[in-house]
């Protein structure tokens, strides 16, 4: 692969009905590029959970996927409320999702743990009142 393939999506906040469209697009692009299926599956989970986080918690934001020679990097950036305690947010079962989101089955408190579990590298940075940045990397041929 010569140049990295970049995909960037602006995700709308609180629009549950289109949630998942961007991550599905990323998954299909990876498949089209012939990326190994295990990576495609992990990337699909990472992208979906990251996209849903933007929808339900951050009032929207940017979801990016960059595919280069040896790795895939999925990142998000938002100007949402931020996460005061990242360790707590990483605990399975902990959620701050709204009642509306929970009624639809979101807010299991497994979004970030699912992302981390499927990543080779996982970085998250958040400032309350400013926003959150997340970078997840998956290496090929591992």
């Amino acid at each position: 692969m010569a140049a990295p393939v970049c995909m960037e999506y602006r995700i709308e906040g609180n629009n549950f009905m289109v949630a998942g469209t961007a991550s599905n697009n990323i998954k299909n692009t990876l498949k089209m590029l012939g990326i190994q299926s295990d990576v495609c599956r992990r990337a699909a989970v990472i992208a979906y959970e990251a996209e849903i986080n933007l929808v339900i918690h951050a009032n929207g934001g940017i979801l990016k996927a960059v595919i280069s020679e040896d790795k895939l990097e999925i990142s998000t950036e938002d100007e949402g409320p931020g996460i005061p305690d990242i360790d707590q947010a990483m605990t399975e079962g902990y959620t701050t999702a709204s009642n509306q989101a929970r009624e639809m089955g979101f807010g299991a408190g497994m979004g970030l743990p699912n992302i981390k579990r499927n990543s080779d590298l996982f970085e998250i940075e958040s400032t309350p009142g400013v926003g959150t940045k997340l970078i997840s990397t998956v290496f090929f041929n591992k």
Binding site: F16, S23, N24, R41, V45, Y48, M104, G105
Partner: peptide, 16 residues
Amino acid sequence: TIQAHLNVAAVAVLKD
């Protein structure tokens, strides 16, 4: 499941 909305399909696609 008892969840009956569009995102159920998204999850199904994701997990085959």
